[in-house]
């Protein structure tokens, strides 16, 4: 499979009154065509900012992409002008946001909102656009798409609105779909429906998806590959099985141990990660997880860990993987 997106050493910072917040710190990753990549991490770890940089949606000022490169389909995104970007947004790359109520225009009906994109990017007539919109609505599983075309966002439930958002995002057959917390605001049963929709899209249209979430369960069901981010840094990446079943970074260990699972026994206890996530004003010259890490060594305070390659595609930014580091086993997990 060919590489659709190549991100190298991406750095994003925001100027605030408190100082410069380095939200994304030298993040590199690849995405192949038709692949689902999940970016996971806690709030403020830079996962959304990374995705927004790909669309060049970082508000400037205060934000700024200060370094790195983003190659999409072998073209440098960061070198494009704003009008060139507008041709890409919604067309080759599209996005689904978390909150469908604020992302949809409340005074326009579903038909207008979907056909607007088609009319803008594709050379189609209004009747053609209407027909395509109905097709899209049934693709995302909206019953009676013809009548729903006339509905306004407030007339739809949260799950339905999220489906409309997905239909809009898919209108121009994008090569890349960025789903920023697509199910976070939804109930579990509705979440399961939306995950099913995303799975179908992926099978039928072979769209590459970047899935941003903090729910590792959603990741397990949908993604091929996972990136774990912590405080603006990429800490671990690999296939879902590698990262969720045999994680190598102490943060990923901690994250998995602090999550309750439905298949846990009654005696199993959760082991939280001690401490707080770090301040993003902090300098870059050390491991970001150092203050909370049980396995910290001297070198962790002196230098930023590089990416160590494990088996196959699994890579970990942790000094424990250095050949001279003591062999550290993953602590016993719950469940």
């Amino acid at each position: 499979m060919n590489t659709l997106l190549q991100v190298r050493d991406l750095e994003v910072e925001f100027r605030t009154y408190a100082g410069i917040v380095r939200a994304v710190r030298k993040v590199s990753f690849d995405l192949k065509a038709g692949e689902v990549l999940a970016i996971v991490g806690e709030s403020g770890c830079g996962k959304s900012v990374t995705a927004q940089s790909i669309m060049r949606l970082i508000p400037t000022p205060p934000g700024r992409i200060t370094g790195g490169s983003i190659l999409f389909d072998n073209e440098e995104i960061l070198a494009k002008t704003e009008s060139q970007m507008q041709k890409i947004r919604g067309n080759a790359i599209s996005v689904i946001f978390q909150d469908s109520m604020t992302s949809l225009n409340p005074v326009l009906n579903v038909r207008t909102q979907i056909t607007e994109i088609l009319r803008l990017h594709k050379n189609v007539s209004q009747p053609q656009a209407n027909a395509r919109a109905i097709e899209l609505l049934s693709l995302v599983g909206i019953p009676e798409p013809k009548t729903r075309m006339k509905a306004y966002p407030h007339e739809l439930s949260g799950g339905m609105r999220q489906r409309v958002m997905i239909a809009m995002a898919l209108a121009c057959d994008p090569q890349l779909l960025i789903a920023d917390e697509p199910t976070t605001a939804l109930d579990v049963t509705i979440q399961a429906q939306i995950i099913e929709v995303l799975k179908n899209i992926r099978q039928e249209l072979n769209t590459a998806i970047i899935l941003i979430t903090h729910d590792l369960g959603v990741v397990a069901g949908l993604a091929d590959r996972v990136m774990v981010m912590y405080a603006g840094n990429l800490v671990e990446q690999g296939t879902v099985d590698e990262v969720l079943c045999e994680p190598l970074h102490p943060y990923t260990w901690g994250l998995l141990r602090s999550l309750p699972r439905l298949n846990m026994g009654p005696e199993d206890k959760l082991k939280p990660i001690w401490g707080q996530p770090p301040d993003l004003l902090l300098p870059l010259d050390r491991c970001p997880f150092l203050p909370r890490c049980e396995h910290a060594m001297g070198i962790c305070a002196q230098d930023r860990p590089p990416a160590f390659n494990g088996q196959d595609s699994h890579s970990v930014n942790c000094w424990l993987q250095h050949p001279l580091a003591p062999r550290t086993r993953r602590p016993q997990e719950v469940g």
Binding site: I195, V219, A220, L244, L262
Partner: peptide, 18 residues
């Protein structure tokens, strides 16, 4: 409907979709 953070188990599960 609750997703489980265990990929092999998650792939095997049967969902009852409401």
């Amino acid at each position: 409907a609750v997703p489980i953070a265990d990929p092999p188990l998650e792939r095997k599960r049967k969902r009852i979709l409401l």
